[in-house]
Computed example of a mutant assay.
Amino acid sequence: MDESPGTGALRVVVVDDHTFYRDGLVGLLEESGLVVVADVATGEAVLGAVAETQPDAVVMDLSMPGMGGVEATRLLSEHHPSTPVVMLTVSQEEDDVLAGLLAGARGFVLKDGPVEDVVKAIREAAAGRAFLSARVSRRLLEHVQRTHRRHGGSRFTEQEIDVLSRLSEGESPETIATSMGTTERAVRRLASDVVTKMQVENRGEIAVRALRDRIV
């Protein structure tokens, strides 16, 4: 698996409004070999923290008072596009998953999952790929399948859908790679391509609506 774009341990900013959870997560990430360069409690604060520390990735809580994780992620994508965001939440509802990913998040991990998932998501995001827990993959798969059918099968490849489907069933990238006769990195890239296509498609649709409605 790819490591930091630079050298040494990956540098991370953690954003969560619950102090007890945030402190615990910071400790677990540091025990896993990551360096937490800042931890903040609000979406408003993360923009300054990222500008100051230039981390390799941000771990962002979805639900926070004031500026929520989706809006903070959207602003980070605009002002710090090279800093990937991993969304962390208790929700696996499709609308929440899609909102986070379409805002620009490169990973989506549930809070009740193992910390190893968070670490994997950070490393994948820092390497330019996406990471989704199995339960989140199921939600994304439902959206992808509907979109695929609506556009006559032109949006996603069958291989991308197959990988996403198997991830949603709990298969590991390593197992999927072995059965497909490819590498684990290639499997992760296919899953990442789904997220990228979805984000690009969303930006395109926003632009079309803006022109149609004479907003721009």
Rank of each mutant, 00 (worst) to 15 (best):
G6L: 08
A9G: 03
R11D: 00
V12F: 03
V12E: 08
V13W: 08
V13Q: 03
D16A: 04
H18Y: 12
H18E: 12
T19D: 13
T19S: 12
D23Y: 07
D23V: 09
D23M: 06
G27M: 12
G27N: 11
E30F: 04
E30V: 01
E31T: 06
S32T: 06
L34F: 00
V37H: 09
A38Y: 15
D39C: 08
A41G: 15
G43P: 11
A45Y: 06
G48W: 10
A49L: 15
A51N: 05
E52A: 15
T53R: 06
T53N: 14
Q54A: 15
A57H: 01
M64Q: 04
G66W: 00
M67R: 15
E71W: 05
A72D: 02
T73D: 00
T73K: 10
L76D: 01
E78A: 13
H80F: 15
P84L: 08
P84K: 07
V85A: 07
V86L: 11
T89A: 01
T89V: 09
V90K: 15
V90W: 11
S91A: 11
S91G: 03
E94F: 00
E94I: 11
D95C: 05
G104C: 10
G104R: 09
R106V: 02
G107N: 12
V109Y: 13
D112G: 13
D117C: 05
A121W: 08
R123W: 07
R123D: 03
A125P: 04
A127R: 00
A127K: 03
R129V: 02
F131P: 05
S133Y: 08
A134E: 12
S137P: 05
S137V: 11
S137F: 15
R139L: 12
L140V: 07
L140W: 04
H143D: 12
H143C: 09
V144M: 03
Q145P: 02
R146W: 02
T147S: 14
R149N: 03
R150T: 10
H151W: 02
G152S: 08
G152W: 01
R155K: 14
T157N: 05
V163M: 09
L164T: 00
L167V: 03
S168W: 06
E169V: 01
G170L: 08
E171P: 04
P173K: 03
I176C: 07
T178A: 08
M180C: 08
T182L: 07
T183M: 04
A186G: 01
V187Q: 06
V187F: 06
R188T: 04
L190T: 06
D193L: 13
V194N: 04
Q199T: 10
R203Q: 09
E205D: 11
I206G: 00
L211Q: 06
L211S: 13
D213H: 10
R214C: 13
V216A: 08
V216M: 14
